[in-house]
Design a protein around this nucleic acid. Structure first.
Length: 935
RNA sequence: GGGCGGGUAGCUCAGCGGCAGAGCAGCUGCUUUACACGCAGCGGGUCGCAGGUUCGAUCCCUGUCCCGCCCACCA
């Protein structure tokens, strides 16, 4: 695949200087980011009729609540890998950046700022408060966008969107009105989740349940009119002030005499009917009598509807008892609980309490216990909308990865409840509903109406509430492309390709985008959903300011001393335990690991329904890897200098074994990377390239290339240079999506043929098998070479032979054919790499080794290391080697002696075992003979 | 009460029918002119537990014990 012509791109940078021994990301990263951005390389340039395929990702817009955290770094990394890979592969790529206004979260943050000034939002009034929030938005939003740049995000910044942009607001109003017109948006009075702290209603999703709370089940009696009593139990005694019925099971013989009777309320003058309800009451639970508070409990609310009970609100929107509560009026709900219990005790109606394990609903934002309240709110009717969204996933029009999440998605969608979308906040999208002062008619319109549609009255009041922030987020994939205008962007880039996000917002955001995309655009918003884990600290605990365990991506990139970390944590309100954790875990703070290292680290975790416990040691490892790549290039540049060898992007021809081998291994690595990227297994893709570069290219090829480059054979030297530069530049290109900065820097320094891409970011992504396939013969031969070299190294290390000491080596090939290969040059390579003078003995030569000679068996050959005098050590080493072989042979024997195995296992498996047994036995025999010779 | 995921080397995690792997940590050497952010070598695991299927199980099935998460209106 070809990429856009970049020969005229103004890519230039001063990379002529000497390469320092260590790579310093602080120097290269800002420099290259500016070059990319200023050259317009992030822009999606597709025009109508552009033949290139498109690839589109809409970023999950970060909240304007502060600064970027590790979760965002995760988003940026994954998405940037996808985008950069596709860009290099010739796609017209668009990555839409943006910011979310994050209604409640942002309002809470700004209110906290005001509180520090001793003010509340009410002191400012709505208009001035919103001004403050907009100020905050500007500041926080800018910071977030800057931080994303530091991570290397190649977004099309000119298309940056904010969920409260003018155009975006138009989209929100349009969708609201359309849903209203179809009867899918409605206003209703319901029992809702009320957050008394922020004084707003919450959707079901914004309520989190705290499990296994140790509470108590308090029992008290109601006096029955005409004598007797019934005992009820409750975890919330204060709600008894709002009891409007007492329920028993219709079939409960114990209470048959109570049918149609009343009880009296001890604190307010009210007769409370005893009702029969088989749905609410479980005869076996407690006393079998249930107090009914329709205004403050979901099940009681339903019961109230069935029986036409009065809904008596006793807890106000402010969490205090309302004025129908007599002596308890004005008390905080928790104070009232105590007081009610005390008073019940006083009047002799308390009947004791039992410990009770329960779950407590808490507000996701404020953490306060959520109070069920009756209130009039706007709802979206979800069931008709969910159907198509379920189908889309069933039919694979949207694919969810990892697949385990599909089930979770279906479960939620199939049991979906209506979505409460109004919020009693100031920061958010206004609800486009105006109430007629004269006739109360609800006027829902795209623009503010001048007169009531029903009575013509001109006195209209707009709904003071705003919309749930997720309502606008649900429109993200098309609103960012200009909808409701029919823009060229919308035509070209919708549906988007992949959506990548954290699994924690599968319901909040992903599911609702699918719903809205299908409803509004008539098509899915994206083809694929990639869900990633939550980034946690090293212990697997969620990062939080209070815990002090927040790892700021920017600190990881640029470095931070322990003192700086402690200071920041303390400023964020971290507790002493959190600071201790920091001291213990990061005693030296962070070095400047660089964005590339952080990115590689985040990519290295396998996708799973699990947390990503970010380890600094791991980041350090990838920092080291960047340095490794840097130094490999440094080595290559030194050897290429003045030679005229250049990278062409085309695989050079090779005859020498190491050259053939490394080209073949490169191909294997590229194939693995390609597969990993295709499967969204970034861990596999990055891992394949990491291991190729470090374990094969650096550990073996670069070492083997040294003797080759010193050869008198000019053609061999030229070939090796061509291979060296090719393998390196291919690795650099292949790693670019994961490690954009160091690769761009190295790319600039590598000598390139005139036609080759000027910038790595737009260079063609290397494809496996393009200019040649795997070279099996070379791989096999080089494996043999490696075995011999490793054998010599082992012998040297175990016998304390200094690496500096040159030794004499003898290689005894088993037959003429093998002898030919080693004699032809492999033997010399083995010697060169191990600092030895290696002699290959011809077949049939005498095979007696002197006593000071250590012997290993590798690649079927005997490997003799002369001048090794420590007999005891050598004997011990051989013992261990033989022991290892014995263990393996025993395992093989167990299999082959098993008739079932020989009879039923596939023939090739059996054959393999037999061959292996033969090989190992031969090896063992040779070692035993060598040992005997040692005496 | 349902559902999902996890328990593999000291730590963090890959692997998921046919020789137990990586990174880090540990131990032993090495100022080898690409790299000490390094090189070479070594040690370390009844793959949570118990059954079953299979010639063969870390991998598949059943049960069980821990840990995490999600959903659910039992007073």
């Amino acid at each position: 695949m070809s990429t856009t012509d970049t020969s005229n791109q103004p890519i230039s940078d001063d990379t002529s200087g000497e390469m320092p021994k260590a790579y310093d990301p602080r120097e290269t990263e800002p420099r290259w980011y500016d070059v990319w951005e200023q050259s317009g390389l992030f822009r999606a340039t597709g025009k109508p009729g552009d033949p290139r395929p498109t690839y589109v990702v809409a970023i999950p817009p970060p909240n304007v609540t502060g600064s970027l955290h590790m979760g965002h770094a995760c988003r940026v990394t994954f998405e940037d890998v996808l985008i950069r890979h596709k860009r290099m592969s010739g796609f017209d790529t668009l990555w839409i950046p943006g910011i979310d206004h994050a209604g409640i979260a942002t309002q809470v943050v700004v209110e906290r700022l005001l509180k520090a000034e001793g003010k509340t939002r009410h002191d400012l009034g709505r208009a001035r408060f919103l001004e403050r929030v907009w100020q905050w938005k500007q500041q926080s939003g800018d910071r977030i966008l800057l931080q994303q740049r530091k991570l290397g995000a190649s977004c099309d910044w000119e298309r940056t969107r904010f969920t409260m942009d003018e155009g975006y607001s138009r989209a929100v109003r349009e969708v609201f009105v359309r849903l209203y017109e179809e009867g899918l948006m409605y206003r209703a009075t319901r029992l809702v989740n009320w957050d008394v702290e922020t004084r707003t209603v919450l959707s079901d999703l914004e309520v989190e349940t705290e499990e296994n709370v140790q509470g108590e089940l308090f029992e008290f009696a109601y006096e029955v009119e005409g004598g007797g009593e019934v005992v009820v139990a409750t975890t919330r005694p204060e709600t008894m002030l709002g009891d409007t019925a007492v329920a028993i099971h219709p079939d409960d013989a114990r209470y048959a005499h109570l049918h149609g009777r009343f009880v009296t309320h001890p604190f307010v003058t009210r007769r409370i009917p005893i009702i029969c309800d088989g749905e609410l009451v479980d005869m076996a639970f407690g006393t079998g009598v249930v107090k009914v508070t329709p205004a403050h409990d979901p099940r009681d609310f339903a019961t109230g509807k069935r029986h036409g009970l009065e809904e008596l609100g006793v807890i106000g929107l402010d969490g205090k008892m309302t004025d129908v509560c007599g002596e308890f009026t004005g008390l905080d709900r928790f104070a009232a609980r105590k007081q009610v219990k005390a008073r019940l005790d006083e009047v002799g109606l308390a009947r004791g309490s039992k410990p009770h394990v329960m779950t407590l609903p808490r507000s996701q934002r404020s953490g306060t216990v959520v109070e069920p309240m009756i209130s009039t709110q706007w709802f979206v009717k979800m069931e008709p909308l969910a159907g198509p969204a379920i189908e889309a996933v069933e039919q694979g029009r949207v694919q969810i990865l990892p697949e385990e999440w599909t089930k979770t998605y279906f479960h939620w969608m199939r049991n979906i409840q209506d979505w409460c979308v109004s919020r009693q906040l100031w920061w958010g999208h206004d609800i486009p509903a105006w109430y007629c002062d004269a006739c109360q008619h609800v006027n829902v319109a795209r623009e503010a109406p001048t007169a009531c549609a029903k009575c013509g009255g001109t006195a209209l009041t707009q709904d003071p509430d705003v919309l749930d922030t997720w309502f606008s987020s649900a429109l993200w994939p098309f609103a960012t492309l200009g909808w409701p205008e029919q823009t060229p962007d919308l035509a070209r880039y919708y549906p988007t390709s992949d959506l990548e996000t954290g699994f924690d917002i599968l319901f909040f955001w992903v599911a609702r985008m699918i719903v809205m995309g299908l409803k509004v655009m008539g098509d899915v918003p994206f083809r694929r959903v990639l869900l990633a884990g939550l980034v946690t600290d090293e212990r697997g605990e969620k990062m939080s300011k209070v815990k002090g365990n927040v790892v700021d991506p920017i600190d990881v990139l640029g470095g931070a001393t322990l003192d700086a970390l402690l200071e920041k944590a303390a400023a964020g309100g971290a507790k002493p335990a959190g600071l201790d954790y920091l001291r213990k875990t990061y005693p030296e703070g962070f070095a400047a690991y660089g964005a590339d290292a952080l990115r590689m680290t985040l990519l290295s975790y396998a996708p799973a329904q699990r947390k990503i416990a970010l380890s600094i040691k791991r980041i350090e490892g990838y920092r080291n890897f960047a340095n490794k790549l840097w130094n490999a290039t440094r080595y290559a540049l030194g050897r290429l200098a003045g030679s005229g060898a250049v990278a062409t992007g085309t695989r050079p021809a090779a005859t020498a074994l190491p050259n053939r081998w490394v080209l073949s291994r490169l191909d294997a690595a590229l194939a693995a990377a390609e597969q990993g990227l295709a499967d969204y297994r970034f861990d596999d893709a990055s891992g394949a390239l990491y291991h190729f570069v470090w374990d094969e290219l650096c550990d073996w090829y670069l070492e083997l290339s040294k003797p080759l480059l010193q050869s008198d054979d000019a053609a061999l030297v030229a070939e090796t240079r061509a291979v060296l530069v090719h393998v390196l530049e291919s690795s650099v290109r292949a790693l670019h999506p994961m490690m954009p900065f160091v690769t761009e820097e190295l790319w600039a320094r590598l000598p390139k043929a005139p036609g080759h891409a000027a910038a790595c970011i737009v260079a063609p992504y290397p494809v496996a098998g393009r200019e040649g396939l795997r070279d099996e013969a070379a791989e096999e031969a080089l494996t043999a070479l490696q075995q011999v070299i490793v054998a010599v190294r082992q012998v040297r290390a175990e016998n304390d032979v200094s690496p500096a000491r040159r030794v004499a080596l003898t290689l005894e090939p088993p037959d003429a054919a093998v002898h030919a290969t080693w004699a032809a040059g492999l033997g010399a390579l083995a010697g060169a790499v191990t600092n030895g003078d290696l002699t290959v003995t011809p077949p049939g030569a005498p095979r007696d080794a002197a006593v000071d000679t250590a012997v290993a068996v590798a690649a079927g050959c005997r490997v003799l290391v002369h001048g090794v005098v420590d007999l005891a050590k050598e004997r011990a080493r051989l013992d261990r080697e033989i022991g290892k072989l014995d263990k393996e042979l025993a395992a093989i024997a167990k299999k082959l002696d098993n008739e079932g195995f020989v009879a039923r296992a596939p023939a090739d498996v059996v054959a393999k075992e037999r061959a292996r047994r033969a090989e190992l036995s031969e090896q063992r025999e040779q070692l035993v003979r060598s040992q005997q010779r040692l005496g």
